[in-house]
Design a protein around this nucleic acid. Structure first.
Lengths: 204, 204
DNA sequence: CGAGTCAGTGAAACTCGTTCTAGGGTCGCG
DNA sequence: CGCGACCCTAGAACGAGTTTCACTGACTCG
């Protein structure tokens, strides 16, 4: 709806960076209990000691805010995963293991996960750049887990995209109580088999 | 939020069935132009000549309404697809072909597709039964396209679930303008390769 | 017939995302 | 020092989903 400039992206002052942090923190905290609905813009503003108008200057909508929150959380997760890379041999297994690890992390804060994922899939075109960023982060995590030597082939990128699709959608079905964790695990493992299919070097 | 009975599911009188139809029709029509946002409950009520309170008695929320609309549309599509089953030999190709056909149908009413899919992924636990129904319908369409002889194996069901995940998620990325139709096609074809992987009878 | 029940009606009320308005503070520059 | 240009605050206001409530009309069962 609003076609404003986004001050959030280009060099903020220290105070502004602090405000942004406070907002994201408040958003995550409110989401942690209560999920999507509990993240109310007035509440976020109040908890981060910022006027409502200012909140909207930083994040032009609730969905923008929650997608940015997800971005933030994903970055943390990426770093964490980097520190303890998967131990398995097989790339497909490594990816599956990594995603299940991420999944268990989300499990610890199911409401937060709910809020972020719902925002992500509910986002319309006006949030595309931010959603894209999240997508790139996810892709990076998966590619990292694959542990490729060179750059990925087009086929591998397709596989990664499909894995990502499955990851998001499986997450949603779990969050809405329509699939068990075991089911999610199976789905993840199933889709990760695609990686073997696209491996450039086969061993008989 | 509301834990009401659902009169919509158990035998309605003729007048009630007609009302329900009118509501679904109005919902689809409003969604067709304008998408999710254009489906305003007051408008739906007015266009279907029903009081707002009645609308809410039939569909306890906007999301319920749109998911029911999707159910309706999917049923139509299922019948249409039944009439002209895919021509290919290979099951994976048949499924991919079927899904792309469905995709092109949705393309014809992108706003409607947007409204329905957004509602579907935005649905919380209170809509689970209805979302599950949609999921079952989608599964049925895919299984039909596979053209199995006997009942599907557990492995095949996993593959179908993953295909479904990919289908939904790819649809979302397309609707939000983050992926081209070509990309969706590639993703669908990629994930459909899983079917070959799970075929009980292999040919060397 | 008469009372009870229950779907449907109409309108007002409430909530929360979003927008708007008015004013106050701060910083850099003449 | 003064003065714009911005950023920020406080709060009201608006819009749409949802809830509530008092009422009506039709149907049922005694």
């Amino acid at each position: 709806m609003t076609a404003e400039v986004k001050p959030a992206s280009l060099q903020l002052t220290e105070r502004q960076e602090a405000r942004r942090r406070r907002i994201l923190h408040a958003s995550a905290r409110l989401a942690s209990r209560g999920g999507f609905d509990a993240v109310q813009m007035r509440e976020v503003a109040e908890h981060s000691s910022v006027a409502l108008g200012t909140l909207y200057r930083y994040f032009p909508s609730k969905v923008h805010l929650l997608v940015a929150t997800m971005q933030d959380q994903l970055q943390h997760m990426h770093e964490t995963l980097r520190k303890r890379p998967p131990t398995e041999e097989d790339p497909a297994t490594r990816v599956a293991q990594t995603l299940m690890r991420a999944f268990r992390a989300l499990q610890r804060e199911p409401h937060l996960a709910d809020a972020m994922v719902r925002a992500l899939t509910f986002a319309d075109r006006s949030v595309s750049p931010e959603v894209d960023m999240v997508s790139r982060l996810t892709t990076a995590i998966i590619l990292d887990a694959m542990g490729l030597e060179g750059p990925p082939t087009a086929e591998q990128l397709s596989a990664v995209r499909v894995i990502e699709h499955t990851w998001h959608s499986a997450l949603i079905t779990w969050l809405s109580g329509r699939a068990s964790i075991a089911q999610v695990k199976i789905d993840i493992e199933t889709v990760c088999r695609l990686i073997d299919l696209t491996a450039p070097t086969e061993h008989p």
